[in-house]
């Protein structure tokens, strides 16, 4: 590995009082809460899917016409191409596509941080997209949020719509800062992809080592906040409209079959 890829280690500092409390809180967020939130998300999603699978089947077909020769392919097209949005609101569609493609790359960007996975060259200091992926989700999220402040979108929105978008926005902005902004210091990268890989290594190994030993510098606060908000997102995911991640295809199948 390129030694420059890893930021310089700093001397461990022993804290007391409020600083000690923060250390413990940070540790809880960075390690145990990661596992807890993943478990809550998985259990929540499974429970949600089970509740739907166990519900009675509709007594009749809910499809609309003209019927498609290949309903499954049509539903796939509806789900991933969103042709109805492209036709009705092209700008909204553009941002939706940008956002969802960005999420796809974001997933792989984080997967790349796991030890043994090298979608980007190991010596690269950047994550996938070198910051572009982060922007591709951040900009549309601003659009999604602002469009809810006018017209009927404002009237049909409920507090959870705004809070969810704000949550995403802060996760993305912090992510942008971590993946991109932290390279803007006079000395180059504060934290590099290799540093985050070490952190993911701690999580993967269940060693419960304090991540502070591998993530150094003042950016750590932002990393903790990013991780905390992402945990929050994972834990509420099964209970919010984000479940459309899993249900969009089955829903589109309902109108195609």
């Amino acid at each position: 590995m390129d030694p420059q890829a890893v930021s310089a280690a700093s001397q461990a500092v022993v804290h007391t009082g409020f600083a000690l409390f923060l250390d413990k809180l940070y540790y809880f967020i960075m390690v145990p809460l990661v596992y807890i939130s993943v478990i809550v998300m998985i259990v929540g999603i499974v429970a949600k899917i089970v509740s739907i699978v166990r519900a009675p089947i509709p007594a009749f077909s809910l499809k609309t016409y003209p019927a498609k020769k290949r309903p499954f392919l049509a539903a796939l097209g509806d789900t991933f191409g969103m042709p109805m949005i492209r036709k009705e609101k092209p700008l909204f569609w553009f941002f939706l596509m940008m956002f969802h493609i960005g999420i796809f790359f974001l997933f792989f960007g984080h997967l790349d941080l796991f030890p043994g996975v090298n979608l980007m060259p190991p010596e690269s200091r950047h994550m996938i997209g070198a910051g572009a992926v982060g922007l591709s989700v951040t900009i549309p999220t601003f659009y999604f949020l602002f469009r809810r402040f006018k017209g009927q979108e404002r009237h049909i929105s409920v507090p959870s719509d705004y809070l969810l978008l704000l949550l995403l926005l802060f996760i993305f902005l912090l992510g942008d800062m971590i993946s991109w902004g932290n390279s803007w210091t006079a000395n180059g990268f504060v934290m590099t992809k290799a540093d985050f890989k070490n952190y993911f290594g701690i999580l993967k190994s269940f060693s419960f080592v304090d991540p502070r030993t591998v993530l150094h510098g003042s950016h750590y606060h932002f990393v903790v906040l990013h991780v905390f908000l992402a945990e929050l997102f994972m834990m509420i995911l099964p209970f919010t409209k984000i479940v459309h991640t899993f249900f969009s295809l089955p829903l589109n199948l309902l109108r195609r079959r």
Binding site: K48, S51, I52, V53, A55, P56, I57, P58, A59, L62, I85, F92, G151, Q152, E153, I156, S157, V158, D161, K241, V243, H244, F247, S248, P250, L251, L254
Partner: peptide
């Protein structure tokens, strides 16, 4: 039923 649960859970209020 299945459909109704999906309809009620999934609306994104996209407008």
């Amino acid at each position: 039923n299945k459909a109704m649960r999906l309809y009620l859970d999934t609306c994104a209020h996209c407008g």
